[in-house]
Design a binder for these strands. Sequence first.
RNA 1: CGGAGUGUGGCUCAGUCUGGUAGAGCACCGCGUUCGGGACGCGGGGGUCGCAGGUUCGAAUCCUGCCACUCCGACCA
Length: 438
Amino acid sequence: MRLSRFFLPVLKEVPADVQIVSHQLMLRAGMIRQEAAGIYAWLPLGLRVLKKVEQIVREEMDRAGAIEILMPTLQLADLWRESGRYEAYGDEMLRITDRHKRDLLYGPTAEEVVTDIFRASVKSYKDLPLNLYNIQWKFRDERRPRFGVMRGREFLMKDAYSFDLNEADARRSYNRMFVAYLNTFARMGLKAVPMKADTGPIGGDLSHEFIVLAETGESQVFCHKDLVEMGAPGPDVDWDGDLQPLVDQRTALYAATEEMHDAAAFEAVPEADRLSARGIEVGHIFYFGEKYSKPMKANVAGPDGSNAPVHMGSYGVGVSRLLGAIIEASHDENGIIWPDAVAPYDVSVINLRTGDAACDAACEQAYAAINAAGKAALYDDRDERPGGKFATADLIGIPRQIVVGPKSLAEGNVELKIRATGERSTLPLADALKSVGA
RNA sequence: CGGAGUGUGGCUCAGUCUGGUAGAGCACCGCGUUCGGGACGCGGGGGUCGCAGGUUCGAAUCCUGCCACUCCGACCA
């Protein structure tokens, strides 16, 4: 993309009351624009990152055997009356009436819809296990939206729903999602720690929140510090095999959010290993058994001829929230530092003297070579002063910058800058291209 | 939902107390000088001062009502 033809409304200033750094940087980098409280328009740069994050989530879901569908944003109130949640959900649910005076709602989650889809078509244990997911916009009319996309009212969520014959099978489905989440967040450069979460009236131990540690996090969390650096198993796990050891490895160490915090158990952790910190919840997995299948009569036949409610679990990832979490975890005083996997562009080409024949030619060559290599290049070909170009490049956080100016070019060189380290080197264009993979 | 605030060109804000020709910086347009880490000069365009009503010779400014947004607390991907 040539910057002269792009739409990148960067800002030098943001409102004084925008406190959180990820929110400031997303506004300044021209990624989002607020349209109403907790409601944002996604501008081109933000949308590119959002799609990259979404795609990583999708790939890891697919790898773990989940199957993508797309459910509507608007749902029928009658479905929620079946589950009993229409009245229970309260003011957070945005209720809508259509021209026929029929009650609709903008979905805050999709257990009812997915259960309806399931019960219409699946009648036998032979079709299990099944895990259906979608990545769709949700709306929750939060009392107080804040922190930009971290707590918006409208947000993009990946929500997966597993269906199994019994609790033992459901635990295997749960474990697949547990491991998939470890891999998902690791691919984005995040250190997300699974922590014991509240299971509410269902009880049991099958609920975990995945928490990214950050000073600006909304949750107070407590864990064994080894969990932070434990890393992810990677894609080569046996998804049909026993994942319990991988899960046990993480759940054996203490980790809990404030609601589930057990001070006595935490005290049992050696003091040097205790970590008390703030965190951002980026994922939540949950087994809830027959909570929806029973009232909604989503039954399956078992091998013994029985007919019983299917056992379900749900698994959420805050896709739009992840952008905020990534920026909170990776930025400096100059702007965002995108991890390679989610960067909106791989390389920026900066022309310090647009209009200079030699500079233009070298930049065009670099731009073409990077694109031909299958990388995404953002070419700053604007007629602007160099300072502004450097500032913009650092602000929007492209991982690598190839800087072409008349002085070094006269000696046959360009400058290569690595955004994350600030490291700069002077070298021939061909070498710079090679080092960015072009 | 309780408490505290803020609404003035695209953005950040002053002006409101004490009513009297709507301002600054940034951004934008033109010309020129510039150009290796957010340049400078000169000129220019752009605002029903959140909305409605009221007081007044006269309202961004005072009064009433409404709306929107932000911040602090209790709930949540």
